[in-house]
Design a binder for these strands. Structure first.
Length: 121
DNA sequence: GCATTGACTAGGG
DNA sequence: GCCCTAGCCAATG
């Protein structure tokens, strides 16, 4: 079923991790987008927190970037993050992603969620 | 249960 | 285009 975990206070984290895992290779999402997919559009702050404390390998954390196409952070290894993104075919210039709007993953559910009562951004 | 933290975002200078 | 400030949420100590 779609209901995963729901066992304890780690529900939100599980949803966030699940959303990140759905990001296909070669695409990226912003923390805000991940928050939307997780069901809490205003919890992007927490998303960053979760990512920082995330120790999982099955979650492509490197595909989560900041808004505007900036890389954001990666536990201090931003260079590694950039390398991973480049390895997936994404163009990275400095600390930003080239063709950002093209590399950004835009699933229908996300577009719909954004359209629902929000300026989009 | 309270205070602090954190891989953020949006707005203004 | 870059830097600073304010706001927000969840997890952790």
């Amino acid at each position: 079923m779609l209901k995963l975990v729901t066992k304890g206070p780690i529900v939100f984290r599980a949803r966030v991790l699940g959303a990140v895992r759905q990001i296909p290779p070669g695409f990226v999402l912003t923390y805000g987008d991940v928050a939307i997919l997780a069901g809490a559009p205003k919890a992007w702050r927490a998303v960053g927190n979760i990512m920082a404390t995330c120790e999982r390998v099955d979650v492509p954390c490197h595909r989560v970037v900041a808004s505007g196409g900036r890389l954001g952070g990666y536990g201090g290894n931003v260079a590694l993050k950039r390398a991973l993104l480049v390895a997936e075919g994404l163009g990275v210039v400095g600390t930003r992603i080239r063709d950002w709007q093209h590399a950004r993953w835009n699933p229908p559910v996300l577009a719909k969620a954004r359209r629902a009562g929000n300026c989009g951004r």
